[in-house]
Design a protein around this nucleic acid. Structure first.
Lengths: 120, 120
DNA sequence: GCCGTTACGCACCGCCGGGTGTGTAATGGA
DNA sequence: TCCATTACACACCCGGCGGTGCGTAACGGC
């Protein structure tokens, strides 16, 4: 693909816009190793608020990136898992982002820190 | 890399957070084919506001993803180009996102549209 | 002297995502 | 009977990004 498609194709915009919501890829990463209940998701991620997690799950469900499975038990048990679509997005592009972050992330943080210095 | 690094490593978060600003990857895509002046950037992208473009360029500069080169001429001529860091980010992960969007983007849009239907 | 071009800066508004606290239905166990 | 657990919903504030409009400094050309 060339850069023209990037500018014109709304599908590309739709995919990059997924990352507008900072917690969504984090939730996907937490689900990458297997299905989790809501409570275990919170503990695994750590530092995420209950409502924020709810919003993220709703969005990921609406985007078809995760599946929800509720069991009729007590106390209630609801499991979330990556869908096929979400699995392909995580194993491909998101892993590529993570790999790049491990290789060049420090250079990014350096640049951010330097610009923060000159601003003060 | 495994999902634990995704949750713990701040570099990964820093990279995914780049996409919080929806226009930044678009600007990078416009610069992918070569350096451009600010005015040509606006025309190439299309539908971007002057201030929004300014903000995006400032952020990309602060992140070290693009370079700025001003020429002492009249009328003023300022050229923006992808830096080495920005080039590696675009050619790798961002292209991977674009490729995924071409393959599965319609499934994403379908899911979004379906959830919008049931909501109304 | 006046206007057009270029590349900005600045002030303001609206929306929405994230953050915080509180409430609730159903159920099992002490 | 009372309480803990689970998985939510609801109401609110705050900050920041995107969007809109206007101003400006430098210079060339008419």
């Amino acid at each position: 693909m060339d850069q023209d498609e990037f500018l014109a194709d709304c599908r590309v915009r739709a995919v990059t816009d997924l990352f507008v919501h900072t917690w969504d890829p984090v939730v996907m990463a937490a689900l990458a190793s297997g299905p989790l209940r809501r409570r275990d998701l919170r503990l695994t991620i750590g530092g995420i608020r209950d409502k924020v997690l709810t919003d993220a799950l709703h969005r990921l469900l609406a985007n078809g990136l995760i599946d929800r499975r509720a069991h009729a038990e007590a106390p209630p048990r609801v499991e979330y898992a990556l869908s096929d679509l979400g699995r392909s997005l995580f194993d491909g592009p998101i892993q590529a982002l993570g790999q790049w972050a491990l290789e060049h992330g420090d250079r990014l943080l350096d640049a951010q820190e330097r610009s923060a210095m000159t601003r003060s």
